[in-house]
Nucleic acid binder design. Sequence first.
DNA 1: CGGTTTTTTGATCCAGATCAAGCTCTGTGG
DNA 2: CCACAGAGCTTGATCTGGATCAAAAAACCG
Lengths: 220, 220
Amino acid sequence: MLSPIRAQSFEPTVHLDANLDAVLATPCACPRFARDEEIFGEGETADYVYQVVSGAVRTYRILRDGRRQIDEFHFAGDYFGLELGEAHRVTAEAMTDTTIRMIRRGALSDLAARRGDAARAILRLTAEGLQRSQDHVLMLGRRSACERVAGLLLDIAERTNAKAELDVPMSRQDMADYLGLTIETVSRTLTSLQDEGLIALPSVRHVVLQDRRALERMTA
Amino acid sequence: MLSPIRAQSFEPTVHLDANLDAVLATPCACPRFARDEEIFGEGETADYVYQVVSGAVRTYRILRDGRRQIDEFHFAGDYFGLELGEAHRVTAEAMTDTTIRMIRRGALSDLAARRGDAARAILRLTAEGLQRSQDHVLMLGRRSACERVAGLLLDIAERTNAKAELDVPMSRQDMADYLGLTIETVSRTLTSLQDEGLIALPSVRHVVLQDRRALERMTA
DNA sequence: CGGTTTTTTGATCCAGATCAAGCTCTGTGG
DNA sequence: CCACAGAGCTTGATCTGGATCAAAAAACCG
């Protein structure tokens, strides 16, 4: 969650991620998706890998009775939809108006077969996803509502390169479904963080981190 | 958790996992660890990748105040300790007397650089770990205590190739720390599953799945 | 504006945590 | 072979963080 994943690299001296970006900067479809529009659905054939150009995306799964768990939020630059098997295991939707780059999966595996650096970049993306998922497990398994909300805010700040003031692209429901809470609890937690002076909420989708140190202490 | 990960493969017709096993079947240190002995600690340099030969391993992280979250259980054949960065992000301990195969990380990356199939096998292992972690997130975020316990039992059964009767190598505390619950809740849930006739508990570390269908219905 | 959706706030409830005994295994030494 | 200590597990009583139910207040939007 808070680990500086994006600053790490398998081979510290080489920017493989950038490398993959460069290699793939060949003609690619870059469709736009409106807010709440589906990009792909759970169970669909995974013919493409996706990258957020601008905007933000949520990937989630739903249980039979409608309970939803958001797996991950994806921001500009992030890849998503990379699958091991033939089918997507999650549904992906745009959270705001979003531009997406689509890369044919076949093209990607060809590239990986030809170039070791591309193969390593794909491995790195997958391993970063695993690290993030493990942080998510720790969050859901052993943290209180307050710690979870604080952690999410810091994570968004880091991933969108925000300083103190941050744009929250997701609804309270999205936050709740990511954090394993209800909307009410998320809302109450945010107001109590505001009452304690740790954050300010100038508007619903705007948060100011007023005491980042204190927030970080909660999530350590 | 219940998805048949082990049956999937990136290239459906080739058994890459077996391939990696074969390639690595060269002279390797195979130390034994006693129950509860540490294999590696969080923060230590990740010089090796590990494979369970026999026995079972838990990997976990601990928060400042002692809360523990078990990340994953590893059974015979499973690889663990594969890291993106230089350091291990979790601690690994033997749950029972366990034999472990240690593979030099350098040897593995050399191999991956030389052989595309080895690189793909490593990617596959990482991606499987990611899938498992995502299932874990869904479990912790949106499932009840009862659903979690049922899910764990079915997962153990599958991964240890047990039919109805299964050997549970972990303590109640381990289950609790994997499931994001307390020992008391795990214990109570097991007894209530027994009372409902879904399982039997001939001894503490022995479970008989008496109505697997019903258990599966809980976790779907 | 008025209608709809989203968010906040309030009141109440409950699943699972916590606190507190007992109980059941082990193993150990006499 | 038994007494008994210690760890791990179960069970019981109570508490509580977050869920649920309900409604008011913002925000959004034609």
